[in-house]
Design a protein around this nucleic acid. Structure first.
Lengths: 144, 144
DNA sequence: TATCATTTTGAGACAGTTTATCAATTTCAA
DNA sequence: TTGAAATTGATAAACTGTCTCAAAATGATA
């Protein structure tokens, strides 16, 4: 199975090098599995990888996903009692509409909002690397 | 100490009446404390109220804050590993520019972004109650 | 106001998620 | 190849939030 995620692997290696961290078999394995997802929980990834690698520990999954966050490859999003790790490289970036009634999540993108964010950032001397936008409310079904 | 939150108390009583629930000393106490906050965690409220009422149980705080959510007075949001209960009657916006270099945080407001958020929500049948927008990047000082 | 079915409370047990611990193993620079 | 440093796996521990249940409080009714 070829590594089709050369760019992300490069980014990970760069982060590891900068922080005196090491590239391990597990980190490669988890990265490849992670990049195939749009977003996933640690627990789900644990079960998924257990099929091919039964001795991979849950703690390692958590540690590695948090490492990916530090490296800018992933972004943690807390909802309900679980943490979902978003794949940042997956189709740019998506924001979320979250129904507080039924917990339904709708993803959206809005270029105009992105543009205004850049504008706000520039006005304050910032260069944006990533962002998080979550709108909380009630979906049409839950409003009634 | 007079109850200065007549409107919210009225809304709570209405909810209680509709659902065969009872108005208790604890619910009044917690409501008054809650309405003084913009947002608070159950744990924080527990410690705050423990000073004047050492026997108020943590479970009661959780139950009551969830009751407020049902009554439309509060809204739960998950932040990190904790749940914050937003006071719905406060409508302050808290958008943030966060520097990943020096951790500086700049607050901002942008009406145009807010308007576009409403638009996106409406297009998806949602009614927004609150939102969270965080822009991560480098400030001018850290970029160099 | 007294009665009493129903709801609520407090205290702690419990459950689900994430992190800490630590001996054994692996990595990688020299 | 060597060895200091980082990482892993297994599991204990921590944390947040919910459940349990006997005792207490509430409020509708008489």
């Amino acid at each position: 199975m070829a590594n089709t995620h050369v760019k992300e692997m490069q980014a990970l290696k760069e982060h590891l090098g900068k922080h005196q961290l090491k590239l391990t078999r597990q980190r490669e394995l988890i990265l490849n599995a992670f990049l195939r997802q749009e977003h996933i929980t640690a627990e789900a990834m644990y079960h998924q990888l257990a099929k091919s690698d039964p001795h991979l520990g849950l703690a390692t999954i958590y540690r590695t996903l948090n490492l990916f966050c530090d490296a800018g490859l992933a972004q943690a999003r807390h909802f309900g009692s679980q943490t979902k790790y978003d794949n940042v490289s997956h189709k740019g970036h998506h924001d979320h509409l979250i129904c507080t009634g039924c917990e339904k999540i709708v993803e959206f993108e809005n270029e105009e909002i992105e543009r205004l964010q850049e504008e706000v950032a520039a006005r304050n001397g910032f260069t944006i690397k990533t962002h998080r936008l979550e709108l909380y409310g009630l979906c049409s079904r839950c409003r009634h």
